[in-house]
Write a protein that binds this DNA or RNA. Structure first.
Lengths: 164, 164
DNA sequence: CACCTGACTGAAGTTGAACATAGTCAGAAG
DNA sequence: CTTCTGACTATGTTCAACTTCAGTCAGGTG
């Protein structure tokens, strides 16, 4: 029986015997699980830094954008960096942190999945391409030794407790 | 000025001149953007097929699970496949489709991001490893020519209209 | 000085996603 | 035929997220 599921190992084998309380998918979703957070991050990767840019480009309301931006700063995906345009006063800006940048594969993954499975109307579609090389990009699941893997090639294992 | 943003090209260059209506990130989120959808898909990859398995393992309520499962079937990520255990009547089951399987990189991406940036309490943490090889897995953004890329290495381009 | 702009904040109302509880329904077991 | 179990559905409620509309505040311009 071939399947597309991960293999549960060791104490995880009986799935009903453990709670997914340590599941970092859920933890990640608690931080950035809202639609508007995804869209704001998208715009950060598209170069937005100012409040009004985020508002206009995501088409979410000002109060929602303000709340979400504060949340993303609090969660460490964005940081504030004030800027000053000539003849203007100093204004707050938002910039991706390392944590924010590392969210990029998730966004690209969603985009690619949406490309393949969630497009009815093909209007205004965009794609990411490698500069110079020109090829389209995708996300792949790969092990540290460089093997590209399918769910079926994976074991879910318990991690040793980290020293805090 | 080095940055971690994608390069907008052609008509996309003036970001304020286009709406992200064709953004497939938003399209993907419309389909699977709810926390419970992500958790149900996680359990599908962990091998759940039955209604009560999904309910117990995601710890979401029955009505929410029923609604979300129906939604995922409607969106084509899961399909129903009835099963029958010996001495039991035929019961409905849920199985990943191709569209569901292709969502895997997004889940792994979230998990990896959560591993790195959203874990306070290190209890009960789990990790995916390549079977046999034993190495941990990660998601990488890569172009079709095999180059691993950063946001800064990418152009956002307009796609030619597809024939429907 | 009044005015303007960008970046918010506050209040009120709507929607929707989640919950708990309870009820239904099908079919095999007894 | 009644019981039991798994898979739901129905109802009602809570809570969060988002909306619109209006107001505030800081600081540079005329």
């Amino acid at each position: 029986m071939t399947s597309s599921t991960v293999h549960l190992t060791g104490p995880l084998e009986r799935r009903d015997d453990w709670r997914a309380s340590g599941c970092t998918i859920a933890a990640a979703l608690d931080v950035v699980g809202k639609r508007s957070s995804f869209l704001l991050l998208r715009e950060a990767f598209y170069g937005a830094t100012r409040f009004d840019e985020f508002v206009r480009r995501t088409e979410i309301s000002e109060p929602a954008a303000a709340a979400r931006l504060r949340e993303l700063v609090g969660a460490g995906l964005l940081e504030r960096e004030d800027y000053r345009e000539p003849g203007q006063r100093t204004r707050p800006g938002y910039r991706l942190t390392d944590a924010g940048r590392e969210f990029f594969p998730v966004l690209v993954g969603l985009q690619r999945w949406g490309d393949r499975w969630a497009t009815e109307s093909g209007d205004g579609r965009v794609a990411l391409r490698h500069r110079g090389c020109g090829e389209r990009v995708d996300v792949v699941v790969r092990c540290a030794a460089g093997h590209e893997v399918e769910p079926d090639d994976l074991d879910l294992t318990v991690l040793p407790r980290r020293r805090s």
